[in-house]
């Protein structure tokens, strides 16, 4: 039988290659099973966030346009009108806060919904409370810094939420401007 020299470079290379490919194969299989499930969950999640802003929502579609600082801009049909939703992720105290901001065609806030965050439990997570988020409703961009009270003890998180809302308004106004020109 062929004698294998376990100390040789070639042997170590082969062993590591075999192990890595084995693990890669395992991951490829698991990924092919889970990725459609994950994609569906993500879409549902966005749908739910949009639905809680526009309760009479019928459908939404991503504009797939590049928007400044925002992740995605959606056109939402609800009732008999169309408005906008922007997914933004400002940096909070414990990382990114992903939030869905509803913006009407005349650039007022129609609702804010926190999708996910990793703020300090019990402190920063208070920005999810309706008391705080409902302050934004109906505001225009110039009123946000003055008319929204931050939560004491959670200044960084609340400020991040404000920044997120401002970003969303900017994104929609840019989008509308671009539409006018084109």
């Amino acid at each position: 039988m062929l004698k294998i020299n376990k100390e040789s470079i070639l042997y170590t290379v082969i062993v590591l290659t075999v192990i890595s490919s084995g693990i890669a194969l395992l991951l490829a299989i698991i990924n092919s099973v889970t990725s459609p499930v994950i994609a569906k969950k993500n879409l549902e999640e966005k749908g739910n966030a949009i639905q809680s802003i526009y309760t009479d929502y019928i459908s939404f579609e991503s504009t797939k346009t590049e928007v400044k600082n925002a992740e995605e801009l959606y056109i939402v049909s609800h009732g008999d009108t169309t408005d906008y939703c922007v997914l933004v992720s400002p940096s909070g105290f414990g990382g990114e806060i992903q939030m869905m901001v509803g913006v009407t065609g005349d650039l007022k806030i129609s609702g804010v919904e926190i999708v996910s965050m990793s703020e300090t439990a019990g402190v920063g997570t208070k920005i999810k409370n309706a008391d705080f988020l409902s302050q934004f409703i109906g505001l225009q961009v110039n009123k946000i810094s003055t008319d929204v009270d931050v939560i004491s003890g959670a200044t960084v998180s609340s400020t991040a939420a404000k920044v997120g809302v401002e970003t969303a308004l900017d994104a929609v106004s840019e989008y509308l401007k671009a539409g006018d020109n084109g």
Partner: peptide, 14 residues
């Protein structure tokens, strides 16, 4: 890390 990634994907999906 292979197993951790597998677990991560499964948790994210289910």
């Amino acid at each position: 890390s292979g197993f951790v990634t597998a677990i991560e994907l499964l948790i994210r999906a289910y």
